[in-house]
């Protein structure tokens, strides 16, 4: 179906692309350059931009980074910490999100704003005292300590994402369940939660992506390199590489970002709608 357009509308379409292409380039080129470095041989690194497309592309860099430099372990650690931290945050947030979605009580709006405001607190502010408690509890250099802090950090956004997810579940279904003799907690478990499953999954994935990026918490809490997630590993690796090993650093960096980008691409629609649900109403 062809829509007839006026010359001015066509000109505006052209202008849209004239603006869109450089923007796309600005955001894409750093990642493409990283890809180009990651498949180069050391010799081709020194050719800079003139060898943007390597003549002898190689996957050796990835093999070396994953096996020799232990990035497989770091990937595993990152996955474990992200998943447990995300699941914990969703678990703790769910009942409160349900209350904010379904119950009417005094101070509801204020409390919701307060929980969101907690997000303004820099990780550094809480980490300085937390570091000492964790030390007393013997949780420094443990994944348990890191996961506990991830749960706390992921909580505010989880409450908001889950509240939006629960808002989308029709009230009629819960009322029907109540008539069938379900109490509120049973309704929550057996009706609301399953029906909000897509929203809950988005909240979990968003938490995992944010945890994957977490640097400060594991950087401060974990000293043993066998426990590092990939974000801490890449920072230390960057400090230990030189110009002649740039291709290895690029490969390690790509290994760090690809899981997050793939997770995002697969679930883009759900993630974007979860993130925008609040914004539209706001």
């Amino acid at each position: 179906m062809r829509v007839h357009k006026s010359p001015i509308a066509r000109l505006a379409d052209v202008a849209t692309y004239v603006a869109a292409v450089p923007i796309a380039a600005f955001f894409l080129i750093p990642l493409v350059w990283l890809g180009s470095l990651a498949v180069r041989t050391p010799q081709e690194i020194f050719l800079g931009a003139s060898r943007f497309i390597p003549e002898n592309p190689t996957l050796d860099n990835f093999t070396r980074v994953l096996t020799d430099s232990g990035f497989l372990v770091y990937l595993g650690n990152a996955l474990k910490l992200s998943a447990l931290g995300g699941a914990g945050a969703v678990l703790v947030a769910a009942p409160a999100a349900y209350a904010f979605s379904r119950l009417r009580f005094r101070g509801r709006g204020t409390l919701m704003t307060a929980i969101l405001a907690v997000q303004m607190v820099s990780g550094l502010v809480i980490l300085i005292p937390l570091y000492r408690y964790m030390g007393r509890l013997g949780l420094i250099d443990t994944h348990t300590g890191v996961v506990a802090i991830y749960v706390a950090i992921g909580l505010p956004i989880s409450v908001w994402l889950l509240k939006n997810a629960f808002d989308g579940v029709p009230m009629v279904l819960e009322e029907a369940a109540a008539i069938d003799g379900y109490n509120r907690f049973e309704t929550f478990l057996k009706v609301t939660l399953p029906l909000a499953a897509p929203g809950i999954a988005s909240a979990l994935i968003i938490n995992m992506i944010l945890n994957w990026s977490q640097f400060l918490v594991p950087f401060i809490m974990l000293t043993a390199d066998s426990k590092w997630p990939i974000s801490v590993a890449i920072y230390n690796y960057a400090g230990s590489t030189t110009a002649s090993t740039t291709q290895l650093l690029a490969a390690a960096c790509l290994v760090t970002i690809v899981p997050a980008i793939v997770a995002f691409l697969l679930l883009q629609r759900a993630i974007v709608s979860a993130l925008t649900a609040g914004a539209v109403k706001g």
Partner: peptide
């Protein structure tokens, strides 16, 4: 999607990527 992809890049990796882009070496 391209713009959002940059957003999911971990902050540390962001620094590492840009340190390669801004590298003052001839290459």
């Amino acid at each position: 999607t391209i713009v959002l992809a940059a957003w999911v890049v971990p902050g540390v990796a962001n620094g590492v990527i840009w340190s390669m882009l801004f590298s003052e070496a001839p290459f």
